[in-house]
Structure formats: structure tokens, C-alpha cells
Amino acid sequence: MVFRSMIRPPRSKLARELIAEAFGTFLIVNIGTGAVMSAIFADALVGLWQIAVVWVIAVTVAISATGSISGAHLNPAISICFALLRPSKSFGWIKVLPYILAQVCGSVLGSAANFFLYSGLIRDYEVTHGIVRSSGGAIGSAKAFGEYFVAPITVTQAFFAEALGTALLAGVIFALTHPRNETTQRHGGLVPPLIGLTVGALVCVVAPLTQAGFNPARDFGPRIVAYLAGWKSVAFRGSWLYILAPMVGAPVGAAFVDRVLYGGAYNDDEMKS
């Protein structure tokens, strides 16, 4: 009886939504960046596609696990898009900040778990490659947490790559969840894997340039862990770009789908159907 009382579900609907957002983002970061760590520090994955496949699985599982509770935004840029373009009784601007905080918390916890698991391998990698964690040259190990771009990629190119990638991702999400999309309205189970596959495809194209962030929570949470774990200022190098570019790109992609591709606003009956 004591155990049952300890796991009693929260009465507040918002509390359950926030827990779902945190849990879903935890899954994405823990599994997705875990694959990056596995590739860098353990040589367990070979090639970008193998890493991308793990991201496909992580995103698909996270959306499937939490979508019916919170809508599975799992990304601050996507939450802003829904508040901006599809406000409803169940989600509006009042929930954006709590959702973002939950997403960042889940991201921090997912990355912290990975650091605990891989800390020994990370130390060995740094010793082998002569990396001093607190130095400016520690991107070689810090890149397993946050994203970075290096020359010859310019700031402009990196910003455009992240903004475009997030625009395409948001556009696909809004297209797949649009009430006038007859294919996914009839076959809702297609949505999570199709979004996951979109992420995987974008990773293959954009990751060689910027490591393919597309999600401010996924990027910023691990940077917090990296900073606390000793990477100091290098942990946040360039972080502004991975926050701002997705925030710029996502509304463009989502607005194109809702306002142009599917021909404008829809009514409440369509939303319920």
C-alpha cells in the first residue's frame, strides 16, 4: 500500500504533461547523445548513418511514449510553433515556458546519466588524445554533449543550416499532424516513425556541418552538464546559434505548411475529427 501511494499519478493534467515532456526529452537526449558518445569514446558505431538510425529510434520511441499525454513537443521551438500557429484550449502561450523548462530538465537528466555511464571512457579518450578538459581546445570531447561547427563552416552557413533543418523538421511535424492530412488522420501510427525518419535524414545531411541540433533543449541541457563536469567556457561556445536558429527556422516551416501548403486556418470541427 505504501508503494502504491508513492507512485500515485499527479492529479494535475499540467503536471502530467510536464512529466511527459521531461521524460520524452530525456529519452531523446539519453539515447541520441548516448549514440554519439558510443561512437566517439567507444568506437562502437561506425559512420554517420549508424548514429542517425539511433536518433530515429530515440525520436520515434519518445513521441510514441508521450504523444497522447502532452502532444510530444519535446523541443522548445516546436512548443512555440504550436502556441503561435495552433493555439487551442489544451495548449497556448501560458504553457510554453513550463513546457520548455520541463524539456530542458529532461535533457539535463538524460545527459547527466550519459556522463555518469561514460565518464571513465571520456577520461581515457582525453588522455589518449591529449585533451585538457578545461582548455579552449576541448571541443574534441565536448562535442559529445552540445553541438559545434568549425572552419571552413562560417557562422552564416551554420545558422542557415540549423534554421533550415529545423524549418524542414517543423514543416514535416505540422504536415503530419494537420487535420486535413488524410493519410495520417487515417493512420496515426505513422506519425512517430515518420518524424523519427525525418530527424535521421536531416542528421545525415546537416551533421557534417553543425552536428545537427534542431532543438534548443537537446543542445542546452547537455551543455549545462558539460560545464559542471569541467569543460567550463568551451561548454557554451556557440550555444546562442543552436538556440536562436531553430527558433527562427521552426515557425517558418510550420507556417508554410499551415498557411500555404494546406491552405490556411482550419476550424474546430476539423481539429476534433
Rank of each mutant, 00 (worst) to 15 (best):
L164T: 11
G171N: 01
E162V: 04
G130P: 02
P192D: 00
L197H: 09
F159N: 02
V155I: 14
T156L: 15
V127F: 14
V127Y: 14
F159W: 11
G146L: 10
G189Y: 11
G196T: 11
T166Q: 03
G200V: 05
A158D: 00
E147G: 15
E147I: 14
R180W: 03
E147C: 15
I173Y: 03
A170L: 05
K143V: 13
I122H: 04
H178T: 02
T184C: 07
H178V: 01
R180G: 07
S141Q: 07
V127W: 13
L197T: 11
L169Q: 11
L164E: 04
Q185R: 14
V155P: 04
S135Q: 02
T183D: 09
T184Y: 06
G146H: 10
G140I: 02
V199F: 13
F160W: 13
R133Q: 12
V132Q: 11
L168Y: 06
T166R: 08
R180F: 07
H178D: 08
P192T: 01
E126F: 10
T177W: 03
G196E: 07
A158L: 03
P193T: 06
H187E: 13
I195N: 06
G136R: 01
V132M: 10
G189W: 10
F160A: 15
V150W: 11
G165W: 05
I122V: 13
G165L: 04
L197D: 03
P193M: 01
L164K: 04
G136I: 00
I122K: 12
E126D: 09
V203W: 12
A170M: 12
I122C: 02
